[in-house]
Structure formats: structure tokens, C-alpha cells
Design a protein around this nucleic acid. Structure first.
Length: 271
DNA sequence: AGTGCGGCCTGTCCGC
DNA sequence: TGCGGACAGGCCGCAC
């Protein structure tokens, strides 16, 4: 399940193959993603040159002249560089055929991903406009979290996963960062001190940075753009470890459900 | 405005 | 061994 480290790993994997390359053709085999792939993507991207491959939150931005393809990998999406004549599989929905005989192939079994095309500033796109700060940027820090939290009663884990609070912290890394910061995921966001929010912001940055360095976390079906898995899974201290001993104190990790999502935490290290 | 939840989708896993 | 059903999960969009 791509979270920010997986998306950044993908970006770094595809960038050197795309920048400066022309797009010869765009094949949309199945436009039924989360939102229908617009005809404009194929019509307008073909014939252009890709200038930059950027990331904002979990969106990848393929900049091509005055247009931008916006790609979200959803739950199960992946982008890979292949020879263009490689036969597509069942879930290979879109190809950008490049002018060097290769292609960028979008695969997404669950079709929670999406692709958009815009001729405007992509950061002003409806889906990107309201997003909170990047977790690895300077704008995201303990002061920001503390100020945003105010007196809100929502559980801190859900607060942390809200894209207005900070982008790119999904279910896995939310549990991990809260564990590192020693904060109970059930605690009300507005009942956490500024000092503890400093710890939490630092924990988010550390967790994501380490995960990116490891090439992302591989759970189930995530593979990087080179087809290889990420190696952060072995670093996870609580996620998917219900019943297993906490590495710090030995007490059993607990699993609870918050907002219809699994949370994992150590009941003695996290308060 | 903040909060909660339905819905999208399919591969995987579990229990019978 | 086969089968049905629960589950996983990002995140928009809607209802309260």
C-alpha cells in the first residue's frame, strides 16, 4: 500500500527514465480508475516532452510543458519502466510510450488510484489545493501540530492521518510515529502538550526518512518501480505486530480499530 | 467547522 | 479441497 515513502521511492525510480524523454503515445486500456482517466490525458500528453517528475503529498506530477499529468497510486497502484513491447497484464491500465522504445506502465489491481491532466498549476488542482504541509518540510513541526490541534477531541492518530494536518502519513507510519513518540493513539489531539508534539513531529520525520532510505515498506503487493520490494517492513516496531512483544518493554502490542482502521500500539510505552 | 462514515475495488486469508 | 465472506486500505464526498 503506497504511503509517502513508497511514492517517493517510485518517483526516484522513474525520474531518470522520464526527464527529457518525449511521450510518443498514450494507451489507456482501462479508464475506470477512481475517477475516469480523462481523454485529455492521452490527447494532450502524447507528443510532449516530460520536463520534471515531482511529488506533492502522495501525488506524482509529470510536468510536460504547460500541462501536467497527476498520478495517484491509491492502494495498489505502481508505476514501472518497461520495454514498450512487453505484453500488458490484466491490471496494467495505462501506458505512456516513450520515444526510446520503453514505456511507463501504470498498474493498479484495485483501481483506487487515479490519473488526471491539467493545463493549470497542478498545485491549484482541486485535489491538491487544500493539502497540509509536507512532513519532511520545514513548515511541518511541533508548533504547527500543536496549533492545528487546538482543543480538538479527535484521536491523535486520526488527526495525524488527516491530510489537512500533514500529508503522506498513512496508517502504517501513523502507528509507528506515535510509538516512537510515546503517545497513545487514542489520546485527544487537543490534550497533548507542545513538547510532546515536538517529539511527534520529529518521529514522523525520522520514520518517513528511514522508510524512504529503505525503499519503502513492502506489505502484500507493493513493489518499487524496479519491481523490487522495499525493506522497511523489518523496521516496523508495532504495525501488524498485535500480540508480539514491544521491543522496548516486552509487553504485548495491542491492536484496536479507529475510524475503521487498525491501530497498533504498546499500552505501557504509549501514554 | 469538525467529525464520522459510505463507497470504490480485488487479492488474500480464514473458517467451514 | 473448494467456497463464501471478511478484511485490507487512501481518501473523496456527503450527512450531521
Amino acid at each position: 500500500m503506497p504511503e509517502l515513502p513508497e511514492v517517493e521511492t517510485t518517483r526516484r525510480g522513474i525520474e531518470p527514465h522520464l526527464v527529457g524523454r518525449g511521450v510518443a503515445e498514450v494507451w489507456v486500456r482501462d479508464a475506470r480508475l477512481r475517477w475516469p482517466v480523462p481523454d485529455a490525458l492521452a490527447d494532450e500528453l502524447a507528443g510532449r516532452r516530460i520536463d520534471q517528475v515531482q511529488r506533492r503529498a502522495k501525488y506524482l506530477l509529470l510536468r510536460a510543458g504547460d500541462g501536467t499529468a497527476i498520478v495517484h497510486l491509491g492502494m495498489s497502484g505502481s508505476l514501472r519502466i518497461l520495454d514498450a513491447d512487453e505484453p500488458p497484464g490484466q491490471h496494467d491500465h495505462v501506458d505512456l510510450v516513450l520515444d526510446d522504445g520503453r514505456c511507463l506502465r501504470f498498474r493498479d489491481p484495485r483501481r483506487f488510484g487515479s490519473m488526471h491532466w491539467t493545463r493549470r498549476d497542478p498545485l491549484e488542482h482541486k485535489l491538491l489545493r487544500e493539502l497540509g504541509p509536507e512532513p519532511l518540510g520545514a513548515l511541518f513541526n511541533g508548533g504547527w501540530l500543536h496549533a492545528r490541534a487546538g482543543r480538538r477531541k479527535v484521536a491523535v492518530k486520526q488527526f495525524l492521518m488527516n491530510s489537512h494536518t500533514v500529508v503522506g502519513v498513512g496508517n502504517i507510519y501513523a502507528s509507528e510515529a506515535l510509538h516512537r513518540a510515546g503517545i497513545d493513539p487514542r489520546r485527544a489531539a487537543g490534550r497533548i502538550s507542545a513538547v510532546r508534539y515536538e517529539r511527534l513531529a520529529a518521529a514522523v520525520k525520522e520514520t518517513l526518512t528511514e522508510a524512504i532510505a529503505a525503499g519503502g515498506t513492502t506489505l502484500r503487493d507493493f513493489l518499487g518501480s524496479d519491481g523490487n520490494p522495499g525493506y522497511f517492513r523489518q523496521e516496523l516496531l508495532v504495525y501488524d505486530r498485535a500480540g508480539a512483544p514491544c521491543e522496548t518493554c516486552g509487553r504485548a502490542i495491542e491492536r484496536i480499530v479507529q475510524g475503521a482502521r487498525a491501530s497498533y500500539f504498546c499500552p505501557s510505552c504509549q501514554r
